[in-house]
Simulated scan of single mutants.
Amino acid sequence: MSHREQVINWLNDAYAMEQALEETLQRHAQDAQGENEEVQTRIERHIEETRGQAQIVRECIEALGGQVSGVKSAFATMFGAMQGQASRPAGDTMVKNAIADYAAEHFEIATYRALIDAAERIGEREIADRLRGILQQEEEMARFLEQKLPGAVEEKLAASAR
């Protein structure tokens, strides 16, 4: 397998990951409805970002001469299952969602940093630059979640002390 083919494979994994995350984010936005309007609004914005990210990844795959795989990779299936665990009905759903989403954002950050490096190594600077835009969005969402996690924990603990 050539380096280019390997990068296409990794981009396909990222594409499947973004699709799995969109489904999870939709559930988490619903969970936040009536609980935290700011979090719900930010998750809904990130759903739109995620759709755009998937489109960019698709375009990068095609620019490299590849095709988007219609099959969810084992990677994306595992990732989606892990994310789904947080949405099980429970009194601490907001805390569990925040933890899962924060972890997912850091997983995405690592994925896109690796993809940027790979694209640079095969001489695809334009693709690396497009992926940097995605990386920036993921880092922004991770910072938002990092700011909101302590409040979710505090709210749950206060509610359980009543």
Rank of each mutant, 00 (worst) to 15 (best):
113 R>P: 03
50 T>K: 03
11 L>Y: 11
21 L>C: 08
29 A>Y: 05
128 A>I: 01
1 M>G: 13
58 R>N: 08
39 V>D: 01
110 A>I: 09
159 A>I: 04
99 I>E: 08
118 A>E: 05
18 E>D: 09
43 I>K: 00
124 E>Q: 08
149 L>K: 10
156 K>W: 10
43 I>M: 01
66 G>L: 00
2 S>K: 04
43 I>Q: 01
14 A>P: 14
159 A>F: 10
123 G>A: 01
10 W>D: 15
61 I>T: 04
95 V>W: 03
50 T>L: 00
110 A>V: 08
52 G>Q: 00
157 L>P: 08
118 A>V: 14
56 I>L: 05
72 K>C: 05
55 Q>G: 08
150 P>V: 02
25 L>Q: 00
4 R>L: 08
56 I>G: 02
135 L>V: 06
9 N>R: 11
155 E>Q: 14
19 Q>D: 07
155 E>M: 04
154 E>P: 02
141 M>P: 14
129 D>K: 10
51 R>K: 14
120 E>W: 12
56 I>Y: 07
46 H>Y: 12
85 Q>L: 04
162 R>F: 13
44 E>Y: 01
133 G>S: 10
137 Q>M: 15
131 L>N: 07
134 I>Q: 11
15 Y>G: 00
139 E>T: 11
155 E>A: 11
96 K>N: 14
105 E>D: 05
141 M>S: 08
29 A>T: 01
162 R>N: 13
125 R>Y: 13
2 S>Q: 03
92 D>V: 13
134 I>L: 10
161 A>I: 06
64 L>V: 01
132 R>N: 11
149 L>F: 14
148 K>F: 12
92 D>Y: 09
117 D>T: 12
17 M>W: 07
78 M>S: 11
54 A>M: 03
155 E>I: 01
2 S>D: 09
93 T>W: 01
109 I>D: 15
38 E>W: 06
8 I>V: 09
10 W>V: 12
109 I>F: 14
69 S>I: 00
87 S>Q: 09
12 N>C: 00
158 A>C: 07
161 A>K: 02
68 V>I: 02
72 K>G: 05
162 R>P: 09
55 Q>S: 11
102 Y>P: 09
151 G>M: 12
11 L>G: 10
134 I>G: 06
130 R>G: 12
34 G>S: 03
132 R>H: 10
124 E>F: 15
139 E>Q: 10
82 M>D: 10
143 R>D: 11
61 I>A: 00
133 G>Q: 11
135 L>T: 09
43 I>W: 12
133 G>F: 05
12 N>M: 00
57 V>Y: 07
152 A>T: 12
144 F>S: 01
70 G>A: 12
19 Q>A: 04
28 H>P: 13
111 T>K: 05
8 I>R: 14
81 A>H: 04
33 Q>H: 09
141 M>W: 12
118 A>W: 10
126 E>Q: 13
47 I>K: 06
19 Q>T: 08
160 S>D: 09
18 E>C: 03
124 E>A: 14
80 G>A: 02
114 A>K: 10
86 A>H: 05
123 G>Y: 01
90 A>I: 08
140 E>S: 15
93 T>L: 13
98 A>S: 12
53 Q>A: 06
95 V>H: 05
97 N>H: 07
152 A>K: 15
140 E>F: 15
152 A>Q: 15
156 K>F: 10
66 G>H: 01
14 A>G: 05
